[in-house]
Structures are given as structure tokens and as C-alpha cells.
Nucleic acid binder design. Structure first.
Lengths: 187, 187
DNA sequence: GGGTAATTATACAGATCTGTGAACGTCAAG
DNA sequence: CTTGACGTTCACAGATCTGTATAATTACCC
């Protein structure tokens, strides 16, 4: 019985499996549309194990988003390490990379659409989006201090989020197009 | 027993009440989070009446989005009738108007996040968003034929949707900021 | 091999979900 | 004054939801 923070590296193998499976289900079908029975069955695990490891469905949802943020952030930083200015475009690349294997848009926006603002996971969503925009602004400030980083970052952020939000509805071409708009704005 | 098209003007008074109440609940709390019992109770109506009028919850959801689109479109056209070029900005104004009384972002994006793509309402969502972008492109083509209407429309569309998608998370200031970006792009 | 943590099996509680059946009011229009 | 549409009452079916209790069993570490 651990279920406090759910640091993915301290998870038991079964728990990690539960987190992986539930992440996929939550993303593909939506959070409310997936029950704990389904998650346990698909993970090849008892419901008891799920509750012993995560404590509640809400906590599992929080773990899902926390882990998603951590994973996403890591691949962003890796890409940034090898990027050349304007590095802000790397954000678009990571999103586009994501979009190659997914079809339901942004996991965080989708979760925000379903959850009450009082849900423990909602703060994670806010923090994630805030972090993205902050990183964007930081990169612009470093690469192009001449521009107005705050305004430019916000403009790019809106393009990014608009494209990602519509990935499921409109198709994935939007992201590369958004990148192109961003590229011109940065030039 | 009608429950086929749900043209709002042919709705019985009770049915209209059900549609109003369910629309508010669906938008505020999410579709899966609201049960038919709650809707019936809050409408001051029996569950039987709900089913006699709409046939199923899915159909009620479809009616919710259909009606929302119709209402929104009408207020858009009214605003456009009194607008002066660049009229594309009127789209931002209608969204911003919406945002003054709501706090959970775009009803269509939120619904898309919850529903399967096979859900009868999903097509309504696609059509709505497509209509918005098409209208945007048409306005730009008429007001500024010199520009590339398709590209410009898409750029504005992304700004619009990015801002609206983040209304619930980030606050409503984003929409006016998006409008400002759009205004400069149109100049 | 003994002790400890993780997991299983199974059953269940209690709530809530969508949807239906059947009989009974009410009221306006023909 | 009958017909028909609208709505109510109320019970219920059957599924699914989150979460728990208990006891037995496996896996791992020292």
C-alpha cells in the first residue's frame, strides 16, 4: 500500500502496468468512459491490486497526467538539447511527433474538459500548460531577445494549442501548418 | 413521442425546458458526469417525459450541440450584419461575448474530448468547426482578396481555437489577446 | 528457508447508470 | 364529447460504477 505520490520509478511492476494500460484507455476513450473493472481486467490484474497501489480512481487519473507530463517533458528537453535556433519550433516538433501515434488530441485538454476544476488532477493540467508556455517564452527570450518574448510566446502558444486541440477533429496536418506559421513569425 | 430531429421550434414547452437544463449541465459538468435522472429532476420533469421527447440520452446530447450551433451561428450572423471590415474579427467578438458568461471553454471541443468518434453527435461537432473556418475564409476572401485567404483563415482559426480551448484553464483574457494578434495579421 | 510485501480469488456493498412498462391524469381541438 | 397528444406516477430491469472485506497465495530478499 503506497498510493501517495506515484513516482513512476518506485512503482511495482504490476502498478506500472496498470498505469500504462489505464493511460491508454483514458486517452482513447475518455476518463469517465473507462471503469476500474475494465482497467484491472485489461491490465491482467485484480481490482484489489489497483486500489492497493493507487488508492482511488481519482488518484490514478492524477498519476496518469503526472506521468504523461514527465514523459512529455523529458522528450522535449532531449529534443531541445539537439536543437538550433529558433528552438521554440522544437515544441511544435514534439507535438507533431506525438500526433504521429495518437489521434485524440491533447490528453490534458481532454481531461480538463471532463474533470471538475476541483478534481485533484486539474492542478496538474494547469501546471503542465503553464510550464509549456513558460518554456516557450524562455526559449524565445534566449534566442531572439529583440522580439517581445511574452507576446510572441503567447502567439505561438495559441497556434500550438489550437492545432493540438483540433487534432482529433480536423486531422494532424494542422500541426505542421501551425509550425509553419510559427516559423514565419520567428523569422 | 417525436424524438427524431429535435428542431427546437417544434419542441413542447417541457421538452424545451429539458433541452435548456441539460445544455447547462452538460456544459458545466461534462456529458458523462450528468445522468438523465439529474436532468429530469432539475427540469422538474419525469424521466419518462425526457425519453418520450428525445428517445435517448445520446439523442439529447445531439440536440444539445445542434441547438448550440444554431444559436451561436445566429448571433454570429447578427454581428456580421453590423460589422465593418475586417469582418473576420467579428468571430473573435462572438467567442469573447460567449466567454463573458461561461467558464468552461468551447462546448464542442469539450464534447469531442468525451465522445467516441462514432457517437451521433461527433459529426455535429465536425460540421460546426468546419463551418466556422469556412465562414472565416469567406469573410477574408471578400474583405481582403489580396491576401491568401486559406492560409490566413487557418492561422486565425488556430488562434481562435487555441484561445477558446484554454478559456477554462487559463482564463478569458486569452480571447482578447488572440483578437489582437488577428487584428495585426489582417492589417 | 523464513519473513515480508505484493498479489490473487471471490464475494459483496451500495450507489448510480440508461432505459422501459403500464396505467392514469389533463386539456385542447375537432 | 370523443379523440389524441402531453405528461405523470411509480415501480422495476439489468447493467455498471467505485470501493471494500477476508483469506489464501505467490514472489522476493536476507
Amino acid at each position: 500500500m503506497q498510493h501517495e505520490v506515484a513516482n513512476i520509478h518506485r512503482l511495482t511492476p504490476r502498478a506500472r502496468r496498470i498505469l500504462e494500460v489505464s493511460s491508454e484507455l483514458f486517452y482513447d476513450r475518455g476518463i469517465h468512459a473507462v471503469g476500474v473493472d475494465t482497467i484491472a481486467a485489461e491490465s491482467g490484474v485484480t481490482k484489489r491490486t489497483l486500489y492497493n497501489n493507487f488508492g482511488s480512481k481519482d488518484a490514478l487519473v492524477a498519476a496518469y497526467l503526472t506521468n504523461r507530463h514527465a514523459t512529455w517533458w523529458q522528450s522535449l528537453e532531449e529534443r531541445l538539447a539537439a536543437a538550433e535556433p529558433p528552438r521554440a519550433l522544437a515544441l511544435f516538433d514534439v507535438y507533431a511527433e506525438d500526433a504521429r501515434t495518437t489521434t485524440r488530441g491533447c490528453a490534458f485538454l481532454n481531461a480538463a474538459a471532463e474533470l471538475s476544476t476541483e478534481h485533484p488532477a486539474y492542478a496538474i493540467i494547469r501546471n503542465h500548460k503553464q510550464a509549456v508556455e513558460d518554456r516557450l517564452r524562455g526559449l524565445i527570450a534566449e534566442d531572439q531577445p529583440a522580439a517581445d518574448p511574452r507576446r510572441l510566446a503567447r502567439h505561438l502558444f495559441l497556434l500550438l494549442e489550437g492545432a493540438f486541440a483540433h487534432q482529433g477533429i480536423h486531422g494532424k496536418g494542422l500541426l505542421t501548418e501551425a509550425r509553419e506559421f510559427a516559423r514565419k513569425l520567428l523569422a
